[in-house]
Simulated scan of single mutants.
Amino acid sequence: MTSDRRTPTAVPGKGVGPLLRGWREQRRISQLDLALRAESSARHISFVETGRSRPSEEFLLRLAEHLDVPVRERNALLLAAGYAPRFPETPLDDPSLDALRAGLDQLLQGYEPYPALVVDATYRVVAANRGVALLIEDVPEHLLAPPLNAMRLTLHPDGLARKIRNLGEWRGHLLHQMQRQIALHRSPALRELYDEVAAYPVADPGERPDPDEPPLPYFALPLRLEHRGRLLSFVSSIATFNTPMDVTVAELAVETLLPADPATVKHLRELMP
């Protein structure tokens, strides 16, 4: 499990005021509302945004917390205000994160035979269990070359997309998820990935119903895909870390695919006792 280092998106020569105003407007929060949440005044918020007042380090971090600014971008705000970054970005293979990696590996293994994986902010797979390996066992090598990307692997015509029964629904769900994250994180790398996967051709985006298959009620949108002649159904759950103090940890997400019907449970348990 490794991670590359990426710098905050602070713009050289651009003060903290315009950056802060940009996050506030993106969150659709007025100066007065932000001031009330941060126990300040709209006048002080205005002075900070126009550059008439320099915020203290703690006040800036308090504003970032109320604006739900991603941890990486909180460093950018601090840099723009003339302060040192507060949150480190530790490589995932650093010895200081040994306990984290061990815990994630244990979590993934404990979820077997069902698929589970860990991705970073751009959906690069940093860890996965044998359940995931089963699903991608016949994916072409060019899609499995490092760095493995979950979105590319799922939506590429040569990847899992050719086996997904409800590709139109699932593709729409994933693209909408990426759009929300782009709005939240303002990540050029994520935008580039979105443009790539959204442009993939979709030969048959609709559900291909089986007339002999009775309809099943689902409690969430399922991922329905074919595997070794069987139709498997999963629902996805995503977990992140609460109050992370490291950029790398803040950008990790654990995705688990929960079997949505007894047939899926039976098939995976037969393949992986």
Results as ranks from 00 to 15, higher is better:
Ser53Leu: 02
Ser53Arg: 15
Ser53Asn: 11
Arg54Cys: 13
Pro55Gly: 11
Ser56Thr: 15
Glu58Leu: 09
Arg62Asn: 13
Leu63Pro: 09
Leu63Phe: 08
Ala64Cys: 05
Glu65Arg: 15
His66Arg: 04
His66Trp: 05
His66Pro: 12
His66Tyr: 12
His66Leu: 03
Asp68Pro: 06
Val69Thr: 05
Val71Ile: 15
Arg72Val: 10
Arg72Asn: 06
Glu73Met: 02
Arg74Cys: 08
Asn75Arg: 12
Asn75Tyr: 03
Ala76Cys: 01
Leu77Gly: 00
Leu77Ser: 08
Leu78Trp: 01
Leu79Ala: 09
Ala80His: 06
Ala81Asp: 03
Ala81Pro: 06
Ala81Leu: 08
Gly82Arg: 04
Gly82His: 09
Gly82Val: 01
Arg86Cys: 00
Arg86Trp: 08
Phe87Ser: 08
Glu89Trp: 09
Thr90Ser: 10
Asp93Val: 04
Asp94His: 14
Asp94Met: 04
Asp94Tyr: 01
Ser96Cys: 13
Ser96Gln: 13
Ala99Lys: 14
Ala99Trp: 01
Leu100Thr: 03
Arg101Ile: 12
Arg101Gln: 04
Gly103Asn: 14
Gly103Phe: 01
Leu104Trp: 12
Asp105Ser: 14
Gln106Phe: 05
Leu107Gln: 08
Leu107Gly: 05
Leu107His: 08
Tyr114Val: 01
Tyr114Asn: 04
Ala116Glu: 12
Ala116Lys: 04
Ala116Arg: 07
Leu117Ser: 04
Leu117Val: 13
Val118Asp: 11
Val118Ile: 14
Val119His: 02
Asp120Met: 01
Asp120Tyr: 06
Ala121Gln: 14
Arg124His: 09
Val125Thr: 11
Val125Asp: 04
Val125His: 03
Val126Thr: 15
Val126Asn: 02
Asn129Trp: 05
Gly131Lys: 12
Gly131Glu: 02
Ala133His: 06
Leu134Gln: 15
Leu135Ile: 14
Asp138Asn: 14
Asp138Lys: 01
Pro140Tyr: 05
Pro140Ile: 06
Glu141Ile: 00
His142Arg: 13
Leu143Asp: 00
Leu144Val: 06
Ala145Phe: 03
Pro146Ser: 08
Ala150Asp: 11
Met151Leu: 15
Met151His: 11
Thr154Glu: 02
Thr154Ile: 08
Leu155Ile: 07
